[in-house]
Design a protein around this nucleic acid. Structure first.
Length: 820
RNA sequence: GCGGACGUGGCGGAAUUGGCAGACGCACCAGACUUAGGAUCUGGCGAGCAAUCGUGAGGGUUCAAGUCCCUCCGUCCGCACCA
């Protein structure tokens, strides 16, 4: 074997061999069990960053390990390549988005290849290419045909800086999640997906995902925001319906006012022609001018005004004033709320501010019905001042009874409300898949026929954003013919949210070159679902919920046979430097290229897996990287030394057996750490301990080393190392005279018998305090261990003159003597 | 405010089922080799002279607690007028 570990030569050599021999190519023609490992595909921004390196290193260990364990592993890579940065580059530097994107992809592909990840590159997909987005468009049409895509005029989120609308999920704290500009509201005709039809299933099926982090499930749960309550119909004095949603129908007898959102359509009607018309219009305008952040900030001062109208409480028949306020939202529930100051903190504050009456309808007990309220009473209690319902416990008895009573009178019903809104997918930007619809004056909205897909993105456009789709600047794009009547028609000119493209890419990987279908159903049935999905937690809601929605919708159309796309999910932590996220603006970025150039990909991968368990944030440390480089050098020299020496075999000595024991316990630990809990850091430290033990054995035994034992250890160490550091492993595998690549060897097995110790060290405790350590034969039973300890010369000294009352023995671990 | 995660040496972290706290690595210190060392190898490395004390603080359960229970503090993340 070579004396020096020359990573530069080794890494390019093996990357070439793996590519030439198509080591990582997979298909469905095998008896092996399938395993689908997927890392979230990147946006081709231009360069890999450490977060990518971490993501793909984790995935590669899983993929290689599963393959060596005998699975047929699908491990693909591709590009989430539509999106704004390409377009912004076009505006700024005058490059065409497609050219900019493809160039970045080429660069990042090279960088990925320099990492030595076991991808089947034949399955590469790019969402911005027509052979992919043709099927994105086709899927849009499938959803449209199922009634799951619809166009409506709505007040939508508008990012003035990106000059496009955004989905609710893309608005974070009232700002654009991409550029952080304050989001405005705009009334536009937009395409939506009816994800709300799937709200309950998306919620229920979270329970079918035991392999997902609780945190992600909780976030989705909150986002869906299911809330059970009653829709109760108040009426205006003119007799018009004014439904409210409430989760506290038990308090309906305590309603002393009613509040509408300023945008509520009834507001204008109620004030028309009255003295309130002018001031109300002013108030509404004022509220609408508030930014989204201020409006939802929570510390916004609650303001409201009476609008001169009254509503009739369906429970009491009483008349209550109608107000409008800045704290009631039009897009949740019905946009109308009943005000119960006595039992809702917010209403209590509001009533105090505007001197509205407070009527108690729930009390701790009936005799406390008239106790004054210092604050809203929100505890469990019994109903008072509530007519025939007095005396009932409020939850759940009174809620059920009043709901049933209202329903009987036709004035209310139990309903379930969700916070989840339909997914707005129109975008007024260029670099996305065109929405495949046409508008005909005679026939209305028509989907583009399948044989006319894809609707190609035009290239004769202006990129400068002007608030509408750049596709409108193409002189040719809009014009088309109606697929129905053949007459003149115009195309939809908005493009799709890129999250639509990434909501199904895991299916395209199953059959990436299919020109006749989005995927072959058999192939998708073979590979789906993704057994292990790996990516950042920032996608907890957006991408992961959209993909779940898509999969369910496709299941219902019989296009896939799984209801959930990702069986197991690992959310990796961030890579930090000096305690904060690496970012260009902070200047604390460590470039993967630089690290790979200096130490090699194997070292980079090893460090990033060793420094922290995968879910946790990882602090970058340059000298710890060197430590990993040293470790690889140490292994290299160790293996070279072993294979360069002239060792013989011999009858096993106790040192040989101990060496073998360490090897087999290491195999066991590494296997369990990878398979059971993805703790790659402890798997690596176990291999370091094995190396330390091998060095110690070699130094102690000298030329007498048992060749069988030490070579078995070296060979199995190489194989165990190969998922983490594949290049050096293959080179050592080859230079030690083995055939093939480590990837195609079976994963090392351990022999349980060899992991047993002959002797064990136990601790002697007195009342739980450590007194001594003893080496005793392994497997001693409790009585024997107790007797053994009692027979020790120091026994009396350990007791310190006290009397032993009890002895606890944990076999092969400890003897604890309880004294008084 | 609500929900979740976390808190262990100088640092990253380990301790998987309640059973020797600090594995492994980094940094540091000493030594070897050397003209030299930012290479390599060997040894040391929680605090304390010691008995002992030590896993954010305080209490509890237990023969035994980093691990279980209660109270509190701190950090990070998510949600936040959701009726």
């Amino acid at each position: 074997m070579d004396k020096q570990y020359n990573f530069r030569m080794i890494e390019s050599k093996w990357q070439q061999i793996w590519a030439d021999e198509q080591i990582y190519k997979v298909d469905e023609t095998t008896d092996k069990e399938k395993y689908y490992v997927l890392e979230m595909f990147p946006y081709p921004s231009g360069n890999l960053h450490m977060g990518h390196v971490r993501n793909y290193s984790i995935g590669d260990v899983v993929a290689r390990f599963k393959h060596m364990q005998g699975y047929n592993v699908l491990h693909p890579m591709g590009w989430d390549s539509f999106g704004l940065p390409a377009e912004n580059a076009a505006i700024k530097h005058g490059v065409f988005p497609r050219d900019w994107t493809l160039e970045n992809m080429a660069n990042m592909r090279d960088q990925l290849k320099s990492m030595g990840i076991s991808y089947d590159w034949d399955r590469e997909v790019a969402t911005c290419l027509p052979d992919y987005y043709k099927w994105t468009q086709w899927l849009f049409i499938q959803l449209y045909n199922k009634g799951l895509a619809y166009k409506k005029h709505a007040h939508v989120n508008w990012c003035p800086s990106c000059a496009t609308v955004l989905a609710n999920e893309q608005v974070v704290d009232g700002c654009c999640e991409r550029c952080h500009a304050v989001v405005e509201k705009k009334a536009l005709d937009q395409w939506f997906f009816k994800i709300t039809d799937y709200a309950q299933r998306l919620l229920d099926d979270l329970e079918k995902l035991p392999g997902w982090p609780e945190k992600v499930k909780t976030m989705q749960n909150n986002w869906i925001g299911r809330s059970e309550g009653v829709q109760a119909t108040f009426k205006t004095e003119a007799g018009e319906d004014l439904p409210v949603f409430t989760t506290r129908v038990d308090t309906i007898f305590g309603v002393t006012y009613m509040v509408l959102a300023p945008e509520h359509p009834m507001v204008e009607k109620l004030v028309a022609g009255t003295e309130y018309e002018q001031p109300v219009a002013e108030f509404v305008k004022k509220v609408q001018q508030l930014s989204n952040i201020d409006r939802t900030s929570g510390n916004l001062e609650k303001e409201g005004m009476f609008i001169g109208a009254y509503a009739i409480n369906p429970a009491t028949g009483g008349r209550v004033p109608i107000w409008i306020t800045n704290y009631v939202l039009m897009d949740y529930g019905t946009g109308a709320v009943m005000g119960v100051p006595s039992h809702d903190e917010r209403d209590f504050d509001f009533a105090h501010k505007y001197d509205l009456p407070i009527i108690r309808v729930i009390a701790e007990s009936a005799d406390k019905a008239d106790e004054p309220l210092e604050a809203a009473y929100t505890e469990i209690g019994v109903l008072v001042n509530s007519g025939e319902f007095d005396g009932l416990t409020n939850k759940p008895d009174a809620i059920d009874a009043i709901a049933a009573w209202l329903e009987e009178k036709g004035l209310g019903k139990k309903v379930i409300n969700y916070r989840l809104r339909d997914w707005l997918i129109s975008r007024q930007r260029y670099w996305g898949a065109p929405i495949p619809m046409v508008y005909c004056e005679k026939c209305g909205v028509q989907p583009v026929p399948e044989d006319q897909l894809p609707v190609l993105l035009p290239t004769d456009v202006e990129f400068q954003p002007f608030g509408e789709s750049p596709l409108k600047t193409s002189p040719t794009f809009a014009e088309t013919t109606c697929p129905c009547c053949g007459g003149k028609a115009t195309r939809e000119m908005d493009t799709m949210d890129t999250f639509m493209c990434s909501s199904w890419y895991f299916l395209r990987y199953c059959d990436p070159h299919n020109a006749d279908a989005s995927w072959d159903k058999e192939k998708a049935a073979y590979w789906m679902s993704v057994d292990q999905y790996i990516g950042g937690v920032e996608h907890a809601i957006l991408h992961l919920m959209y993909s779940r929605f898509f999969t369910k919708a496709l299941y219902d159309m019989d296009l896939v046979d799984v209801e959930e796309p990702f069986t197991n999910l690992l959310t990796q932590g961030m890579v930090l430097k000096d305690g904060t996220k690496m970012s260009k603006s902070l200047g604390n970025v460590v470039s993967p290229e630089e690290i790979i150039g200096k130490y090699g990909a194997d070292t980079a991968r090893l460090f990033i897996l060793f420094a922290a368990p995968p879910e946790r944030d990882l602090e970058w440390n340059d000298s710890a990287v060197e430590g990993c480089y040293r470790f690889l050098n140490r292994i290299w020299k160790l293996v070279a030394g072993i294979y360069g020496a002239d060792y013989r075999t011999r009858e096993l000595t106790s040192a040989d057996k101990e060496m073998r024991r360490v090897l087999h316990t290491t195999i066991k630990k590494v296997t369990d750490d990878i398979a059971g809990r993805f703790n790659f850091n402890t798997a690596i430290s176990a291999m370091m301990e094995l190396v330390n033990a091998m060095v110690a054995y070699r130094d102690a035994e000298g030329e007498a080393c048992n060749a069988d034992i030490i070579k078995e250890a070296a060979d199995k160490l190489i194989l165990m190392l190969s998922p983490f550091a594949p290049h050096i492993s293959d080179e050592m595998w080859q230079q030690t005279g083995h055939e093939g690549v480590a990837y195609n060897q079976p994963w090392p097995q351990y022999n349980e018998e060899f992991t047993q110790k002959d002797e064990v060290e136990i601790v002697v405790q007195v009342n739980g305090k450590l007194k001594a350590r003893l080496v005793i034969p392994a497997g001693m039973d409790k009585a024997a261990a107790e007797a053994y300890v009692a027979a020790q010369a120091d026994y009396a000294a350990w007791l310190g003159g006290k009397t032993a009352v009890k002895t606890i023995v944990v076999p092969d671990r400890l003897v604890n003597i309880v004294v008084k």
